[in-house]
Amino acid sequence: MTEQDSGIHFISSPVFEFLASLYIVHNHEKIKPKQNDYEANHALKSSMERIDRSMNSAQKNELDVFFHYETYIGLSLIRFSYESNTHQDIDQFLACLEQTPAYELFSFLLQTGYTSKEIKSVNDHGEVLDFINEAAIPESEKWKLTFLYVNRDQTKERLLTLLKNYYNTSFKKELAAALEHHEESFHIIKEAGVLSSRAKALEMFPYLPKDTVLDEKTEIIFAPSFFYDHASMVSGEEGSILCLYGINQPENGQDENSSEEKLINALKVIGDDKRLKLMKLLSKSPFYGYELAKKLNLSNSTVSHHLSLLTSYDIVSSKRMENKVYFELNKERVEELFKAASKLFSE
């Protein structure tokens, strides 16, 4: 679904939802919002519980291999399915995956953004191992990626086995209900003007790189996910951005909270010690995610989490330069928040 001439598209993809569910089922405790009163909606909670009961320990172990919180290599298949035009049919996607040579598949599995390098040849062992060694991920995950790469054919078979078993025994019965939520989300963002206005798209999804979104030449693809709930994932290629967003995220973005409540929430975000260090770095110069991870000695996933929170309150903004997304501190916004806090406490 596309708004005429806007360059903004809406995709309801069973494959995207399928892959998102694998990641969320395994990592939902790590990525859920930190508010004390947060609880996943009843439908999502029930679905995750049913899926958890349907999986054996061996499947859960494989889930940790391919959808680990720090490396999430399985999520790279979202871009694979989109580029291979199989994102609308899970059986077609799995068949395409089976026909893809293991070395070619691995070129996608390493496209998760946790290094500053690009791999020119996935068949060059030295280049790939250097790539993995420089990744902003824990050492245990580097060893795992190295093992998976060296055993590429076996890795492909393990991944296919996991996906097929999970689809047939756990996910297939959950798909129809998830897709119903996609339709609801389409009407929400359409009525908000997101599909016809790039400015409106930024209002609802402030973590997207502003200059890229406002560039009329950039294709923007929004894809909802029932399982992603409040989370999001952004995949960028030259000339396009694919944003997988949780269906509860836009609704929350439109909540009419009191200005005082919004201020308090923003101050809570700033108050975290890691985010303060990150803001201090960005106050001196723009950096991209990998640089921040290295300078703060944090994993890429941890930095991404903090940046997502800061951008959602417009404390940090992002912009694309060549093939990297750089982040910078919005100093005027920070001053505005502190002035508002001072006024609040003096009243």
Rank of each mutant, 00 (worst) to 15 (best):
V269N: 07
M321F: 06
F287H: 15
Y288Q: 08
K294D: 15
I315W: 04
E328M: 03
K319G: 14
S285G: 06
D273Q: 00
K295Q: 13
R275M: 09
V303Q: 04
S312D: 14
S308N: 12
L281R: 01
T302G: 04
F287E: 07
L276W: 03
G289T: 12
L310Q: 07
Y290V: 10
V303I: 15
R320H: 02
L309C: 11
Y288A: 05
Y313E: 13
Y288D: 15
L281T: 03
H306Y: 15
G271M: 01
K295G: 06
S318E: 10
Y313W: 06
K284Q: 08
S304C: 03
V325I: 15
L281D: 02
Y288C: 06
K331V: 14
E332G: 10
K274A: 11
K324D: 09
N297H: 14
Y326V: 06
I315P: 10
D272R: 04
A293R: 00
L296V: 05
I315S: 05
K294S: 11
K277E: 15
H305T: 08
H306V: 04
G289V: 01
A293M: 05
S285H: 10
I270D: 12
L292P: 09
T302P: 05
Y290E: 08
L278A: 08
M279L: 15
S304Q: 10
Y290F: 11
L276N: 06
D272S: 14
A293Q: 03
M321G: 08
R275L: 10
F287M: 08
M279E: 13
K331D: 14
S312R: 03
V325R: 07
S308P: 02
A293G: 02
S283A: 12
N300L: 04
N300C: 03
L309H: 11
F327P: 02
